[in-house]
């Protein structure tokens, strides 16, 4: 009994350093940032004068100021970016994993090619994508547009990230940015799904085939349902990357004309370190954190419930 108690203490002590570090570096700093977001700190010198929710009200002021307009655009952009980016990673990743799972010669080569983008720094991939989607002009086509022209697909040419039009609140300029981000991280979902497919026992597939299911049927009814937990954890990992995204868009297009490719991460960085609006920057990051929380906390609750059930 005392032995067990001692061991429980030891278990706690083993985790304690991590707990302390996380308490300070995560929760302490979040609290500090939250405090700044409630202050009037505007300029290099810290100023903790209480401001209540003024900074939040400013960002959500309906229609009025440029900052509020920008922030509203940013939130919509984040929403559509996240939605389409996740969809692209899941669909393409799953497709590639299924293809790779067909006992392919040279699987290692394909896998390395699909994973390779993850190895390259965002700082540089952003520039490469900026060049690739630079539209050029009618007389001087560039990048993808030049390629499309050379194969006769002129109907598919458009302004890519320079296009300022939108469908409802969705800015079409986000499409090339989403392609770039999906290119960088699809390798991750591919690897995850591939791992999941490898975990499906061969007997299960055989049994389904014996029951008369064709290959597509086996995937639809047997395998895909088994991959759901993978989809969920991939969505969470990629989802939080997407909600915080900064480097890639910052180097690829920046805010874009009319803020068509702007996201809260860029707004936060620019307002804090260029405009010296520290309180506003802190406010934006707290809102970013809240959006991430909205996505993550239900997931955490869900997966813990499931664990208890098991």
């Amino acid at each position: 009994m005392t032995h067990a108690r001692r061991e429980r203490w030891l278990a706690f002590l083993m985790v304690l350093p991590s707990i302390i570090l996380i308490a300070i570096f995560v929760y302490g700093f979040i609290g500090w940032t939250a405090r700044v977001s409630l202050s009037r700190w505007d300029g290099i010198r810290p100023d903790y004068t209480w401001a209540g929710l003024d900074n939040y009200k400013q960002l959500f002021a309906g229609g009025g100021s440029v900052a509020a307009r920008r922030f509203a655009i940013d939130l919509w952009n984040t929403f559509f970016f996240t939605l389409l980016f996740l969809a692209a990673c899941v669909v393409v990743g799953l497709l590639l994993a299924i293809l790779l799972d067909q006992k392919i010669k040279g699987e290692g080569i394909f896998r390395t090619i699909y994973l390779f983008p993850m190895a390259i720094s965002f700082v540089v991939t952003g520039v490469v994508w900026q060049w690739i989607f630079a539209p050029g002009t009618e007389t001087r086509l560039r990048g993808v547009n030049a390629l499309l022209h050379s194969v006769g697909l002129d109907a598919l040419r458009w302004g890519w990230y320079t296009d300022t039009s939108s469908i409802g609140p969705f800015h079409v300029a986000l499409i090339p940015v989403i392609i770039a981000a999906a290119w960088q991280l699809t390798g991750y979902t591919t690897a995850m799904y591939l791992a999941g497919l490898r975990a499906v026992p061969e007997e299960l597939r055989e049994a389904a085939r014996v029951d008369g299911a064709n290959e597509i049927g086996v995937y639809r009814h047997i395998i895909l349902p088994m991959l759901q937990p993978i989809t969920l954890s991939a969505l969470i990992v990629l989802g939080h990357i997407s909600l915080k995204i900064f480097d890639l868009i910052y180097t690829m297009t920046g805010r874009g004309t009319g803020f068509v490719t702007d996201v809260p991460g860029i707004f936060m960085f620019e307002t804090t370190f260029q405009g010296n609006h520290y309180a506003q920057g802190a406010t934006i990051s707290i809102i970013m954190l809240l959006t991430v929380t909205l996505v993550v906390v239900p997931y955490l609750i869900y997966s813990f419930r499931r664990e208890v059930e098991l």
């Binding site: 570096f25 970013m288 991430v292």
Partner: peptide
């Protein structure tokens, strides 16, 4: 939760 915070803010 620590992996989800936007690092600019800290």
């Amino acid at each position: 939760f620590g992996m989800f915070i936007p690092y600019q803010s800290i």
